[in-house]
Design a protein around this nucleic acid. Structure first.
Lengths: 216, 216
DNA sequence: GCGGTTACGTAACAGCGTTACTTCATCGAA
DNA sequence: TTCGATGAAGTAACGCTGTTACGTAACCGC
């Protein structure tokens, strides 16, 4: 086949095709050859533009973190900071469920060609967590959470949220209690663990639930 | 090479070699050919004994769950049920850190040839959680935890623990707070979230810490 | 118009899981 | 004691993977 001079940037086409392949067929379906076929190019395109499959995956992961951050940023601060924290939890989980395969790649739950996050990638993840840290700080100022470092509290909430999403996506939550039940129970437990009054959390949870974004 | 009639059971030799390969070189190092070379056999040995790579992995995962259950079962019930719960948390994390690669395979954090847990495998995981459910039930009876279904409470604790271990093994917990700090902070938060008095938890945590098993 | 750079395709290499097909050792029965 | 069956092992191949050496064609600055 003769060389083609069609796409303005084959790189973006590759990224879009990779995202589609990953979403539709999972990590196993994302191969250089299928990628090349999807954009009508050769497998070497991946190497000229990204230097290898792992760098392409890294670019996708960066985009995933950016989207997660965008999604978290849509949660506005209100006078009920605890509701804000839980609204962020809803946003986090909703984003993960909208892009399950990408989430599993982002957090290592799907090995993709020996891909591993670099130090810089982790800084990206830290940045993503910032809206939650802010909300926790405000909840602490409002006296709902007991005194403590908002970063540590937020990190522990994120850890628990990740555990839930990770096990939910892996299909480990079945039993009598499915992921929805576990999620709301965990939100209440997390707020109580941070110092909020158990009953006060219930009212905030109702507010947070009303603020759920309809779709990504 | 002529056929060999050496091993009493090549199946167990394969499993042992697989465990060693996985532990020493990670999921990427566990291939049929390297496995065959490790036991001095051909790749077809995997198929005659396990019917495929994924079934061999499944056998390893079952062994991993069994070992986790054994480890959890070494935590004895005491008069301080909250300390028991946290001691189980220590045991869970210690077992995971002793077998990090296996843990990541067990919970899907390392794709191994399209391996996926079956319904029966999940029942196995449920069985593993039982010691924690019992401890939570006793903490509830002792009035330390607020009234609620021990299974749901235990499941949420497990979810949070998995989140921590998963992110720790993936190298996501750096920052000012490393995994050790996050772990103990999370234990306190979890107990408080379940209804325990925040200060009472501190004393129980000290007891649980003293009970840590030295090694696997 | 021309030379250098860059982007791309072709073809190949090594390695992967998997699977016919063959060989050989063992065991039970006549 | 010999014979047939069973089953476990090896050999070789298929199709797939990521990756790379090499050739070629298009673009860009002069």
């Amino acid at each position: 086949m003769s060389p083609r001079r069609i796409d303005p940037t084959l790189a973006t086409a590759l990224l879009e095709a990779a995202a589609r392949l990953l979403a539709e067929e999972g990590a196993a379906g994302l191969t250089t050859r299928r990628l090349a076929a999807a954009v009508g190019a050769s497998t070497t395109a991946v190497y000229t533009h990204f230097g290898g499959m792992d760098n392409l995956v890294r670019a996708m992961v960066h985009e995933g973190f950016a989207r997660l951050h965008r999604r978290m940023s849509t949660v506005r601060a209100t006078s009920d900071a605890v509701a804000d924290v839980m609204a962020l939890g809803y946003a986090y989980r909703a984003n993960s469920l909208d892009h399950p395969q990408l989430y599993q790649v982002m957090f290592g739950s799907a090995a993709l060609g020996g891909f591993a996050l670099s130090e810089g990638d982790r800084q990206h993840g830290k940045y993503t967590l910032q809206p939650l840290v802010d909300a926790v700080a405000r909840a602490t100022e409002q006296g709902r959470f007991r005194a403590g470092d908002p970063l540590l509290v937020a990190q522990n909430m994120w850890i628990a949220l990740h555990g839930l999403v990770s096990l939910e996506l892996g299909g480990y939550l079945i039993d009598p209690y499915d992921a929805d039940v576990c999620f709301e129970a965990q939100l209440r437990s997390l707020m109580a663990g941070a110092g909020d009054d158990y009953e006060a959390t219930a009212a905030s949870l109702a507010r947070a639930r009303r603020r759920r974004s309809p779709r990504a």
